[in-house]
Simulated scan of single mutants.
Amino acid sequence: MTELIKVVGGAVLDSLADPRRLLVARRTAPPQFAGMWEFPGGKVEPGEAPDVALHRELHEELGISVRLGAELQSPDGAGWPLNERASMRVWFAEIAEGEPRPLEDHDELRWISLRACDEALTLPWIPADLPIVRALLETLAASVRADSLPGN
């Protein structure tokens, strides 16, 4: 049996304490995903811790350093299924240093409103990311009612 490919993604917010916007990235490749939106991130290297991989990927792809918040819990706790061979873990994050730029794999970055969920849900997301977007919006709506993000 082949081990699942481990992928990490960042739900980069304008603020972990009072999130109002989410940074999303538009893919340039592979062809079937070009022009679709996603959470920035990438593959975990062998022997690399997932949180270390996320810091590395966000620096390589966007040129930023981040502070990580809580992990967005997946339904089974093992990560969000991307396909039959890969799963992704997603963490809330905020920019600690740098100005995000599309350096690798993306041609556009966009801050989208979390107050108007329609904006997030009308973007053409990579299909595997859409359930994650919905869960993120539900988690943030619940945290607004509870007045803080989980883990803060």
Rank of each mutant, 00 (worst) to 15 (best):
S15R: 09
E48T: 10
S65C: 06
L136K: 00
E48N: 08
R56N: 13
G9I: 01
P50S: 13
G9Y: 04
M1D: 12
A93E: 08
A70K: 02
L136W: 02
I112G: 04
F39D: 08
E119I: 13
L123I: 10
E45V: 06
L54S: 03
E57I: 02
A86L: 03
L137T: 06
A135P: 01
L62V: 07
L58I: 11
G9Q: 11
R26F: 06
V7F: 07
A135N: 08
R27K: 15
L109Y: 03
G151T: 00
P102Q: 02
R21L: 08
L16G: 08
A141L: 09
G47D: 11
T139W: 01
A34L: 03
A29D: 10
L123P: 11
R101E: 15
K6I: 08
T28N: 03
E104F: 04
A96R: 15
L72Q: 02
A49R: 14
H106P: 00
V66L: 13
P100M: 01
L103W: 06
P100A: 01
G41N: 05
E71Y: 04
V90R: 03
L130D: 03
P30E: 04
R56M: 10
A11S: 13
L16S: 07
V44T: 14
A29R: 14
R56Q: 10
A116L: 12
E61Q: 14
L109K: 03
R27N: 13
A96C: 03
S143T: 01
G41T: 00
E119T: 12
G42N: 13
I95G: 02
E3C: 03
S74R: 10
L149E: 01
F33P: 00
K6G: 02
I5L: 14
E3N: 11
E99M: 04
A49F: 02
E104G: 00
S15H: 05
